[in-house]
Design a protein around this nucleic acid. Sequence first.
DNA 1: TTGTATGCGTTATCAA
DNA 2: TTGATAACGCATACAA
Lengths: 343, 343
Amino acid sequence: MDAEKNESVNIYDIAEMANVSIATVSRVVNGSDKVSPATRRKVEEIIKEVGYKPNAFAKGLGLNTMHTVGILTPNVADAFMAAAVYYLEQEMRGYGYDCLLSCSGFQPEGKRNQLDLLLSKHVDALVLVGSTYAGSGKDSKETDYIREAAKKVPVFLINGSVRGRNVYVTVCDDTKAVRSVTESLIACGCKDILFMTDSRSYSANKKRSGYEEAMQKTGLPLRQELIRFVRNDIGFVREYLHREKPVFDAVVATEDGIAIGVLKYAADLGIRVPEELQIVGYNDSRMALACEPELSSIDNGLKMMCIETVRRLMDILQGRRADKKTVVPCQIIERGTTRFLKR
Amino acid sequence: MDAEKNESVNIYDIAEMANVSIATVSRVVNGSDKVSPATRRKVEEIIKEVGYKPNAFAKGLGLNTMHTVGILTPNVADAFMAAAVYYLEQEMRGYGYDCLLSCSGFQPEGKRNQLDLLLSKHVDALVLVGSTYAGSGKDSKETDYIREAAKKVPVFLINGSVRGRNVYVTVCDDTKAVRSVTESLIACGCKDILFMTDSRSYSANKKRSGYEEAMQKTGLPLRQELIRFVRNDIGFVREYLHREKPVFDAVVATEDGIAIGVLKYAADLGIRVPEELQIVGYNDSRMALACEPELSSIDNGLKMMCIETVRRLMDILQGRRADKKTVVPCQIIERGTTRFLKR
DNA sequence: TTGTATGCGTTATCAA
DNA sequence: TTGATAACGCATACAA
């Protein structure tokens, strides 16, 4: 009816209207059992009537928490990051936590600044999405700022690994997935398998390891000219290949965009996919269904990573213990650009 | 060197160390000019040394603001929404504001709940992204909850229109864009132009109006069987067309995903695009570059909408006036699925 | 079961 | 130019 006049109604007002003390009102609001049913009903009624909502700042000041966790991502416009934020937000909300979102970009300075900013708002925990936060190594100076932040609140990394007290990581088994598809390609008779990536991040390195392991395992020589660094941009990759003219009969790409660039290039030259050229992308984005033929892609289990992260985050926040590192499996989605099964 | 021991150092500690009162420290922190240069230097030095950061809750309690604006979106996993959040976050940060993100889903109950939640955290303003928040009409009961929220903080809508005190809207000229492409198709000689949409939202209705206006303007009959409601899903659309077998020589779709479904269908039947069939998508997503031929699409000027929204939001927050409604133009991106120019 | 009093860390209003 | 002190709204230890 009239739940609108709660502009500045506070606990004192409610107390007065109900002829009780603010302590009692507080108890009712926080569901304490130390209050008689009669009193409770009376207070609850008035609260509902005037639409009283406790002031979050005052609450935060005393309790030093606002049930908010900070999410840091280099760029939410990226489909992968966006999906991660979506899953995280959903999960958190289920536990009654809100999300403070911040985009840091890929520069160290931005990362540090945004992290500090989030911290200054007293988030209860931090979730860092994306392998960019892991730096290139594991214990290098690059990631000191993360350990620094972990002194104040637990820090959770998704798709990146950093060691430190109070920092928890969730990753997927990129190495295994890439090794597996590479081996499948080799089994199909592919000789010149191009590995194309746009990054030297932690996860990109894991993928590359998978490629190299497959080569070694099957006794093939590891040729440097088969490893190419490009931009995750369909047009760029297409032109790059026209310019460089590498010899290859298969491609493992670390991004769907790269893979589709290859597909476009093949179409330009009339190379038949998958008969003459097999292509595997990464992340299983919507683009994988848009191209022709549809792109085989590796699903990195993002949703599971997010769910797993939040689950452990809540464990920590509620004083329980949690694994410091969790690995979730990737899934290989075979579509029209490969023929692993139909050899 | 050692900016880490700021765990619980407060304004009193600083005051004591500097032999001044907390009032003076506060003045220094907030850049008041009523403080002598000597005192200022001394205090600033100590603040830097111990890494003092004012407590955001206490500040919020006094000032009743934490320089945070709430962003509500039905689903950040959607590329369009994600991009919007990205642009908004970037812009806000430029003004020193942070973003509290919330995903409400498409159900009325979720919308109301998340809005209340955001409000309870004392955001300084709200930005609602997506036409779902505008309901289907303009002043209907559906949108009362928005006007309700607007009693507390200014509410900004992106891609949706709602009337009310303290609510501001930014939209793009969907009607004009769709009318324009439809007219172009008619000028190309298309007779059976399918309009395919996945929604009856405010913006979907605007697009439909554009289609209908073009028909009327050129004297063509408005045939109901040419307006189709489908899901924004490539596979769904493809099968839908195989099943329904409508007769058409052009398609205007309200989502790129729908348009690509049509493209796939055409490929199945060997229909040549754009010679025998022209297709226009919407939102100019990355998928538009992934398909073959590349999809002509309407760019709804999202970035400009976001920038424009934040600009006016800051005007309002700083006590200035701002336009209640801003319309930004769409842009038609012509690629391989149309031949407007080469008639 | 209920009430009183205090602390949480700021900002702002007065006096000095 | 400074300092003392009162809000701000809530939770809670302690008293009753």
